[in-house]
Amino acid sequence: MSAPLADALATALGRPVARLTPIARGDLNDAYVATLADGERVFVKTSADAAVGGYAAEAEGLAWLADADALPLPRVLAVGDGAASPAPAAPHAPAASHAPAASHAPAASPAPVAPRFLALEWIDAGPATAAADEALGRGLAALHAAGAPQFGGPADTLRIGPLALPNAPAPDWPEFYATRRLLPLARGAADRGALPPGTEALLDRVIERMPALAGPPEPPARAHGDLWGGNVLTDRAGRPWLIDPAAHGAHRELDLAMLRLFGGPYQRCFAAYEEVAPLAPGAQERVALWQLAPLLLHAVLFGGGYGERAAQILRRYA
């Protein structure tokens, strides 16, 4: 068991941690199930390179999405921000008339940093079902309808793992998507060498066309922001839960497009969504456009073939 993490968690929860068990969950964090002394289980995510304030921002995003009362999200139980522990005071040396002018004592070691973590309500997972897919579609429609004050925000920076994306509000969705998502992500992917030659020129042409490509104007939706299939969890009662958000005001088609990106049994989800909140004409033609940002994000984080997939989409829309 990671003693520093267990100690920090016990302090934050006010209860002893009997056991920390590693579990598989995601690529950007280490995940554990913490069993408390009274038997309660808690989900814990942590990362050695987590940014200060990153988990606090995720906790705020979970609360903001939960306020819509549309789909269940795990309760936040504790946030560890990883502040440095106070360094012990150096002993006071008495004055000496023959003391050397300069001290040769070794430099003080940096103050230890407590683990950064997010502790959440544990969800017992069950099998995905068609009924859960339908509930997900209806719930997403209600979540998006709850709205957001602007495209982007509330913080000017959105953190996804080690990345910090600009998130300041923009006057409309085409500008936000182009300047706060596609351009910075493409720069990051290019710096990693993950984009084929000519991709940036294609992106410039797509951005020029973005106002026409983006479809009819829509108000900002309250969006999960990172809604691939792994961030939907069905519990034993058949209810779909949303986890690991990058919540912000966005076009509602963004969440739906990302749900389609990596596959999943979601056809009933999309049908149920449209029964509640029909999409604007041309939505099917815009799916790949909204998939550009998550593909570029994956190119930045993981390289591989994600940059080529993004370039193929850019060729289509350029």
Rank of each mutant, 00 (worst) to 15 (best):
P4C: 07
P4A: 14
L9E: 06
L20V: 07
R25K: 10
G26T: 01
V33A: 14
V33R: 15
K45L: 03
G53F: 11
G53S: 11
A59R: 02
L62G: 02
L62F: 04
W64N: 00
V79T: 04
A83E: 14
A93Q: 12
A105R: 06
S109K: 14
P110A: 06
V113K: 11
E121Y: 01
E121F: 04
W122R: 04
D133E: 14
A135C: 04
G137K: 07
A142W: 02
A146S: 10
G147Y: 06
Q150L: 14
A155F: 01
T157H: 02
L158R: 01
I160V: 09
L163R: 05
L165T: 05
N167T: 07
E175S: 15
R181E: 04
L185I: 09
A186C: 13
G188P: 07
R192I: 03
G193Q: 10
G198R: 05
V206A: 11
P211Y: 14
A212R: 05
G215R: 06
P217D: 11
P217L: 00
P219D: 10
A223S: 15
H224P: 01
T234P: 14
D244N: 05
D244C: 01
P245Q: 03
A246E: 02
G249R: 01
D255N: 00
L256Y: 09
L259C: 08
L261A: 14
R268C: 04
A280T: 13
V287N: 09
V287A: 07
L297W: 06
A299Q: 09
F302W: 15
G303K: 01
L314W: 12
A318W: 07
